[in-house]
Write a protein that binds this DNA or RNA. Structure first.
Length: 187
DNA sequence: GCCTGGATTATC
DNA sequence: ATAATCCAGGCA
């Protein structure tokens, strides 16, 4: 995909990424689940604090990778969209791998399956070994609330998550309304 | 500087 | 239900 394609609105790109091929060298998978993060006004987005050392890339041009470490364990792959200053990005939550459907299920698994890590942060996706290409046409795409962003108030309910309807590689959405990520610190 | 808590996943 | 594991960013 070229710069123009990525420069469009984040919701459009997130929706159209479903069915596309995500390629990294010899590895590739079909994207079956994404989430749109709208910009500084989006209470669920890393962009909500404005540009910082980590998130400045989100405020740059579209078609660039944003990769960050989550929970100290998992690396998450995002694609910046829109034009400079907007702060939009799409999280790739699941890909269908040719051999193993379970391999690309869940955002932490996507980076594992395609060997993407923080060294790819800020990588230009319009040139090089990491890129998106046309793939298949999904029979149906559904939309619903994003996963794991209950802290974001009204923004948590917006239907910014897109997935290939009934595809087996789509991540299982956890039961919402339950927050069990609290870890007690002895103090 | 210190401290909180997370765009998650595996296992208990 | 909770451990694993680390660092960004708010606040003092």
């Amino acid at each position: 995909m070229d710069r123009e394609w990525y420069a469009r609105d984040v919701e459009t790109v997130a929706r159209e990424l479903i069915g596309c091929r995500l390629v990294h060298g010899k590895r590739a998978g079909i994207i079956v689940e994404t989430e749109a993060y709208r910009g500084p006004e989006d209470g669920a987005s890393h962009a909500r604090f404005g540009p910082t050392a980590r998130t400045a890339v989100m405020f740059g041009k579209g078609g660039v990778a944003y990769v960050y470490l989550c929970y100290g364990i998992h690396e998450m792959f995002n694609i910046v969209t829109g034009v400079e200053g907007q702060g939009q990005a799409v999280l790739i939550r699941a890909v269908a791998m040719p051999d193993d459907d379970a391999l690309g299920r869940g955002p932490g698994k996507v980076t594992k399956a395609l060997a993407i890590d923080r060294s790819h942060d800020r990588r230009d996706l319009t040139r090089g070994a990491l890129y998106v290409a046309p793939g298949e046409t999904p029979p149906a795409v559904k939309a619903g609330p994003r996963v794991g962003v209950d802290y974001a108030g009204e923004w948590a309910n917006k239907p910014f998550r897109y997935w290939w309807a009934d595809h087996p590689a789509v991540s299982r959405a956890p039961v919402r309304g339950k927050v069990s990520t609290r870890r007690k610190r002895s103090r």
